[in-house]
Design a binder for these strands. Structure first.
Lengths: 316, 316
DNA sequence: CCTCAATATACCTTAACGTTATGCAGATTG
DNA sequence: CAATCTGCATAACGTTAAGGTATATTGAGG
């Protein structure tokens, strides 16, 4: 016996509202429409849904039972509408985002926290990676967006790269480091100190090699490698090691007052931190929404950085 | 956003079956039909339900979310069909039945038990009453059926009375009763013994009065009154009291071997035990089914009674 | 008995559904 | 890499069913 869900919805409305007229009003239809629909349903079932010859139109046992199912259907349809609304508004769904480890942990994580506070039904699937794999995954659709530094001319075809910060790296050390006090620094001054090495695949590693080549040190001493930003920070704080970090990462840790940057400008190819995404990815409301959130957060971060630099309170 | 439940059902089928073609087969429709329905839904929502340009037709997050609702709707519609089937087959619903107390307890209760064993989803709402109130309640639709003795000419207009047993009453006593041994009994023999009186409203009470009038006893001694069949039986078993009971009630208690009937024929107006029901009540499948069950049970009960009487194993 | 309110019916219009035939594109295989 | 195959989308057309307005009908209550 095939039953049209719409008929069950109508039945539920009529039973719940207590009459054809009220039910019609509740559903935004006309009374004769409901009358006919229910008659059709009764005819199809071959069984009465309402007691006959009763004016307040009282449901039979069967009518009541089917009305219960109609209520479920109505609720499901309403829930579907709600889900659609949330989805369209970017309030639900999943975002797959990746980026360079240090940057994700030190900068993006807190932005994700803020987003999730406002959007508890959005799931963020985060992972780590470097430029080449990130590009590949964004292109293949495995990732919705990636956060990484990229040279301006290295943006692959078909991808969008929204710049969010200058990709400047600095040499970081603990605040009490011998070099931190010196006003004028030469590259050769840093030669004696051991290094915390970034992962080989990281662009930071290239920058580190460039620095050391500049001061003509071939076999630099690596005291620690392979750790996340948390481990790096701990080691940095407890030793005279140096490392190379994105300026923004160091900036985000300013409140701990434990690390600082040496006053040495590192030369490297010009690049920006940015959000890499497929051009067609904007059809996912959540993704767009999260991307806007990040862009907004970075804009205010950039403002804060500029302000701080002008105030010279926390100094590079 | 108004969403057609049928579209959600289609969506669920396509997602679950893994394609338009399979989904169409599952729903018994054609593939183009589903294609168009889903296109219409996407257009209405303004959001894609499936990843575009994908051959195995994979659902988007929204598509999956709405498919879940579609599954609920499909389940509810299926449940409605099941309910309808059960209802039409008389396997579910409620039956409101009433009858004279002694008869309901001693005879009908075990028949109800058998019915419920086979039809656990049918609810039996039983109550007690005598002819006049039973007739009124059946006529008003408060009762679906009533079981009581009725003279053939007393069947009210608009009601059906299906006879199921002869309405013969007998004088009952314990097996060890002094009168039970006597082969030939006269009405005057019973005069000395105290009576257990049926409720005044009961037809049994009239019969009792008739008997006593026949033996010209005006003020008979009532030792007990107002009890249910259970209480009456207990008192009867433990004393030399007499009472008047429908023969069928006594018959149902034959296995206890504690009560018997005196060999005296009570004269009363001819009447039958029967099922009283409104003529229009047959539109309730459960009622019809239960009524058939009772009729069947009584037919076999009548056979058993006849058989027993011929065998003279248990005497009247 | 009469009136009122609520439901059923009549009739019409329109939109949605279903089917067949066919075009098109992603996948697969050699 | 090309050819083919499978599966989805589109078109055209007929049918069904839903919705609306106007109106008849029928219980319920005074």
């Amino acid at each position: 016996m095939q039953i049209d869900p719409n008929h069950l919805i109508i039945l539920a409305a009529v039973v719940d509202e207590g009459g054809l007229t009220q039910g019609a009003a509740a559903l935004g239809k006309s009374q004769p429409s409901l009358s006919r629909s229910l008659s059709a349903l009764e005819a199809r079932l071959g069984l009465p849904l309402f007691e006959k010859g009763r004016r307040p139109l009282i449901a039979t046992e069967l009518g009541a039972a089917l009305a219960a199912q109609g209520r479920l259907i109505r609720a499901a349809a309403a829930e579907a509408s709600v889900q659609t609304g949330l989805y369209a508004g970017g309030k639900t769904g999943a975002v797959r985002v990746a980026g360079t480890p240090v940057f994700m942990d030190a900068v993006i994580a807190s932005m994700i926290a803020g987003f999730q506070q406002a959007n508890p039904n959005v799931r963020i699937d985060q992972s780590y990676g470097y430029a080449d794999t990130l590009i590949r995954d964004v292109q293949s659709g495995t990732l919705d967006m990636a956060l990484c530094p990229l040279p301006p001319d290295a943006v692959p075809e078909g991808l969008t790269f929204d710049e969010i910060l200058q990709g400047r790296n600095v040499i970081a050390c603990r605040i009490g480091h011998p070099l931190a006090r010196k006003k004028t620094l030469r590259l050769s001054d840093i030669a004696p100190y051991p290094w915390i090495a970034p992962p080989t695949a990281s662009p930071l590693y290239q920058d580190l090699k460039a620095i050391l080549a500049e001061i003509e040190v071939d076999d630099f001493r690596v005291s620690f490698s392979g750790g996340s930003i948390s481990a790096v920070r701990t080691v940095l704080e407890g030793s005279d090691s140096l490392t190379i970090l994105p300026y923004s990462v160091l900036f985000m840790m300013r409140h701990h007052k434990s690390l600082t940057a040496l006053d040495i400008r590192i030369r490297h190819a010009p690049r920006h931190l940015g959000i890499l995404s497929a051009q067609a990815s904007s059809d996912r409301p959540v993704v767009r929404r999260f991307q806007r959130h990040l862009a907004h957060e970075f804009k205010s971060l950039a403002r804060t950085i500029t302000h701080q630099q002008q105030a010279s309170v926390w100094g590079v």
